[in-house]
């Protein structure tokens, strides 16, 4: 089996039983609970969930970029042989941008508004590529050309406010990919862009990572988008990964009630799940003591054991895992 062959080599990224809490004025918020996943080279993994499901926090944890208020009582994150949770900030900073990089939503504000975009790409190269200023400039222009920014030499001197949102996101991608990282984390990269630009940006991301055999973690609330671009999908709900598996298998035969509802809320696979009116209930308050299954209040398939027994991890084969006592 191909899955067996792949697990023989060490995965690029492993998250194991990660628990993460935030200390706040109104008490502990249990943001992530028992998160486990792996990511192989060249793979595109989608992490899908409503806002507040903890997907962005998970992404930041992977980058080793956590708020000081975050506490991790259990679990670990290994990336390319490093422990991202215990590594020193200094060595993490050297890893970021070189081996693991991230792009964000609203690319205009994600870029420094008063610095020329070329200089921002150049900053990344100067930091990680150990090149002269002149060489860095040349490579920055090449990086801008690679994301197909027209007339890159002239655009090098542009400020973000002079470029369209789509062009800004391309600059972001150029910055993130400038040093050929192994892993690109894309946090809602198409939010705030118009529909045609969205496809262009996503195609560009896929093309960039394919050409360098890099992996992608795509954070999105848009199941349709994830279905189109990802090899595997993890569905998050209130700090749990409720289901993870191959895109085909999961979309055609979802096992977790929540996944099924998400798919139901995404008619034709073309609309986003931002409008979740068709899913009754809302995310539970993560400050309270929570039942083992955090979907229990919204679930019509719940059993008595759901409220008492620890969440199971049901392996359906081919790395398709669902965390539910009563899967579909």
């Amino acid at each position: 089996m191909s899955a067996a062959v792949m697990t023989e080599s060490v995965p690029l990224l492993t998250v194991e039983d990660l628990v993460l809490d935030f200390r706040t004025r109104s008490g502990m918020v249990h943001v992530l609970d028992g998160i486990s996943l792996t990511l192989d080279r060249g793979e595109i993994l989608g992490i899908v969930g409503e806002s507040g499901s903890g997907k962005s926090v998970l992404a930041y944890a992977m980058m080793g970029l956590l708020d000081p208020a975050a506490q991790i009582p259990r679990g670990g994150i290994r990336f390319a042989g490093r422990d991202m949770l215990t590594e020193s900030e200094r060595s993490l900073a050297e890893t970021r941008g070189r081996e693991i990089a991230m792009i964000f939503q609203s690319p205009r504000t994600a870029l420094n508004p008063i610095r020329r975009v070329g200089a921002q790409v150049q900053d990344v190269l100067l930091r990680h590529a150990n090149v002269s200023k002149k060489e860095a400039r040349k490579r920055a222009i090449a990086a801008l050309a690679r994301v197909r920014i027209p007339d890159p030499e002239r655009r090098f001197d542009a400020y973000p406010f002079e470029l369209s949102g789509g062009l800004c996101q391309r600059v972001m991608i150029a910055m993130a990919m400038a040093c050929n990282p192994y892993l690109l984390i894309a946090d809602e990269p198409t939010t705030g862009l118009d529909v045609t630009t969205q496809a262009v940006v996503m195609d560009l991301i896929r093309e960039q990572v394919r050409s360098s055999n890099a992996s992608v973690v795509l954070i999105t609330h848009d199941l349709a988008l994830a279905g189109e671009y990802c090899d595997r999908i993890a569905v998050m709900h209130a700090g749990h990964i409720v289901e993870i598996g191959g895109t085909e298998a999961m979309l055609s035969a979802p096992k977790h009630p929540y996944t099924a509802r998400l798919i139901g809320a995404t008619p034709g696979g073309h609309e986003s799940i931002r409008d979740l009116a068709s899913i009754p209930g809302s995310l539970p308050d993560l400050r309270r003591d929570l039942p083992p299954c955090r979907f229990i209040d919204r679930c019509e398939r719940r059993l008595d054991c759901c409220a008492t027994d620890a969440l199971p991890s049901v392996n359906l084969g081919a790395d398709h895992i669902v965390r539910c006592w009563n899967p579909l």
Partner: peptide, 8 residues
């Protein structure tokens, strides 16, 4: 945040 995510 971007600058930190790119390890500057």
């Amino acid at each position: 945040r971007t600058a930190r995510a790119l390890g500057l």
